[in-house]
């Protein structure tokens, strides 16, 4: 554990709390992609199956359980409690375009041909693109509530902080995980456009609006 990873994880936690806060206080999941949230549940469940087989630390176990539970709770909020505020007609990204390639990539790039490793690898690739339906929705509507942009910024910061974490681990432990690093770089790259608008508009007190 190093400060980059620790603050990355904290940022990830913060993003989830911001999202739950947004949905419950506005009593609406408007502007949030159900598909992205469903992908995160898939990511966490497939990756953290090792909860039952390998123990890393109490921190690791508690975080894994939290991520699975909170992501399921968000789906519940969107699908049941605030269902009328969820508009599927603008959440139109085709999931098969994401899931299919991730299955193929996991079969090619993995650390072992067994169910746990294949699912782990699949979850890493899927996480790297899981935000796309959300970003696509943002692009389509051309605007977002400020709270939603804070959610995305915290999520992007979590990914960005994992990069110095890998650099640090390479020098301090000689540890390199090429699958995580490659997928992580792609994932962080997807946020660059968003971050540009977030820094130049939202943090200057303006509304998040994309140029027409």
């Amino acid at each position: 554990m190093n400060i980059f990873r620790f603050f990355g994880d904290l940022s990830h936690l913060a993003s989830i709390f911001i999202l739950i806060h947004k949905i419950t206080t506005t009593r609406s999941c408007r502007g949030i992609s159900f598909k992205t949230q469903a992908l995160y549940v898939t990511v966490f469940v497939t990756r953290y199956l090792d909860l039952f087989t390998s123990y890393v630390s109490l921190y690791n176990t508690v975080m894994k359980i939290f991520f699975i539970a909170s992501s399921c709770y968000i789906l519940y909020l969107m699908r049941v409690r605030y269902r009328p505020t969820n508009d599927p007609s603008i959440d139109t990204f085709r999931l098969e375009y994401l899931v299919g390639p991730c299955v193929v990539l996991a079969l090619i790039f993995n650390y072992g041909y067994n169910p746990t490793e294949l699912l782990w690898s699949f979850s890493i690739f899927l996480e790297s693109v899981a935000i796309l339906p959300q970003l696509f929705m943002l692009q389509r509507t051309g605007e977002a509530e400020t709270i939603t942009t804070h959610y995305l910024a915290a999520l992007g910061a979590y990914r960005a902080l994992y990069i110095p974490n890998w650099i640090y681990r390479y020098f301090s432990e000689g540890y390199v995980d090429p699958i995580s690093v490659t997928a992580g770089l792609v994932q962080t790259g997807l946020y660059l456009d968003f971050f540009y608008v977030y820094f130049t508009k939202v943090l200057q007190g303006q509304k998040f609006e994309l140029p027409a």
């Binding site: 990830h12 390998s54 890393v56 690791n60 991520f67 650390y111 994992y162 974490n165 995980d177 995580s180």
Partner: peptide, 10 residues
């Protein structure tokens, strides 16, 4: 044989 990478990250 063993995993070249031990998954300790979240």
């Amino acid at each position: 044989e063993g995993n070249p990478v031990h998954h300790d990250e979240l």
